[in-house]
Amino acid sequence: MNIDHIAVYCIDLEGMKRFFMEHFACKSNELYHNSRTGLKTYILSFPDGGARLELMSRPEVMKPLVDVFRGGFIHISIALGSKANVDAKTDELKAAGYECISGPRITGDGYYESCIVGPEGILIEVTI
């Protein structure tokens, strides 16, 4: 088991991507845009591998919040190795009383995952 990626909401998605590419030698995937929700994301990989960084933006949602919302941590993603493990962990967490807010499902960008609201409201994504 390991941390697959950490996600951060950004006000300036392109600027944040440039920052990590210029200063930390990250490589980026192509922009993912969900036209239904407005979500835009990049997944950045660091040169030495390991956990990745997901940069996320939903400008139409964030615009009215810009004065109070500065962006930041949104979820932690834990890779479990298989669909069966994702399904089992989702069931385990639901049985323990944690809310599953999505999944298990295949997302628009191809991940198999579910998202659980953990202690103190932290979002925990379990993925392959």
Score class of each variant (00 low, 15 high):
residue 1 M to S: 08
residue 3 I to T: 11
residue 3 I to R: 08
residue 3 I to C: 11
residue 4 D to K: 11
residue 5 H to S: 15
residue 7 A to W: 02
residue 7 A to S: 10
residue 8 V to A: 06
residue 8 V to S: 03
residue 8 V to W: 07
residue 9 Y to M: 02
residue 10 C to P: 05
residue 11 I to T: 08
residue 11 I to Y: 01
residue 12 D to P: 00
residue 12 D to W: 01
residue 12 D to R: 01
residue 13 L to D: 07
residue 13 L to P: 04
residue 14 E to F: 00
residue 14 E to K: 04
residue 14 E to D: 06
residue 16 M to V: 00
residue 19 F to Q: 02
residue 19 F to I: 00
residue 21 M to R: 04
residue 21 M to C: 11
residue 24 F to V: 04
residue 24 F to G: 04
residue 25 A to P: 00
residue 26 C to T: 14
residue 26 C to V: 08
residue 26 C to F: 14
residue 28 S to W: 07
residue 29 N to S: 06
residue 31 L to R: 01
residue 36 R to D: 14
residue 37 T to A: 02
residue 37 T to S: 05
residue 38 G to Q: 12
residue 39 L to E: 03
residue 39 L to K: 01
residue 40 K to Y: 01
residue 40 K to N: 08
residue 40 K to L: 05
residue 41 T to H: 11
residue 42 Y to W: 14
residue 43 I to R: 12
residue 48 D to F: 08
residue 48 D to A: 11
residue 49 G to S: 03
residue 50 G to M: 07
residue 50 G to I: 10
residue 50 G to R: 07
residue 52 R to C: 15
residue 52 R to I: 13
residue 53 L to Y: 01
residue 53 L to V: 02
residue 54 E to F: 04
residue 55 L to P: 04
residue 57 S to G: 12
residue 57 S to M: 11
residue 59 P to R: 10
residue 61 V to G: 03
residue 63 K to A: 14
residue 64 P to I: 08
residue 65 L to N: 06
residue 65 L to M: 12
residue 65 L to Y: 09
residue 68 V to A: 14
residue 68 V to N: 15
residue 70 R to M: 01
residue 71 G to C: 00
residue 73 F to N: 06
residue 73 F to D: 12
residue 74 I to W: 04
residue 74 I to E: 13
residue 75 H to W: 06
residue 75 H to E: 07
residue 75 H to P: 03
residue 76 I to F: 15
residue 77 S to P: 13
residue 77 S to W: 11
residue 77 S to R: 13
residue 79 A to N: 13
residue 79 A to C: 09
residue 79 A to F: 07
residue 80 L to K: 04
residue 80 L to E: 02
residue 80 L to T: 09
residue 81 G to D: 04
residue 81 G to R: 03
residue 81 G to S: 05
residue 81 G to T: 05
residue 83 K to S: 08
residue 83 K to R: 12
residue 85 N to A: 15
residue 85 N to T: 07
residue 87 D to Y: 06
residue 88 A to M: 09
residue 88 A to Y: 00
residue 89 K to D: 10
residue 89 K to H: 08
residue 90 T to Q: 15
residue 94 K to P: 02
residue 95 A to E: 09
residue 95 A to S: 10
residue 96 A to Q: 13
residue 97 G to E: 04
residue 97 G to F: 01
residue 99 E to S: 08
residue 101 I to V: 10
residue 102 S to F: 11
residue 102 S to L: 11
residue 103 G to L: 07
residue 104 P to M: 03
residue 108 G to S: 06
residue 110 G to Y: 09
residue 111 Y to A: 10
residue 111 Y to Q: 05
residue 112 Y to V: 12
residue 112 Y to R: 12
residue 112 Y to A: 14
residue 113 E to V: 13
residue 113 E to D: 12
residue 113 E to A: 15
residue 115 C to N: 12
residue 116 I to C: 02
residue 117 V to W: 04
residue 117 V to L: 09
residue 118 G to Q: 06
residue 118 G to C: 06
residue 119 P to F: 03
residue 120 E to H: 07
residue 120 E to Y: 07
residue 120 E to W: 04
residue 121 G to W: 05
residue 123 L to V: 09
residue 124 I to P: 02
residue 124 I to G: 03
residue 126 V to D: 06
residue 126 V to G: 04
residue 127 T to Y: 07
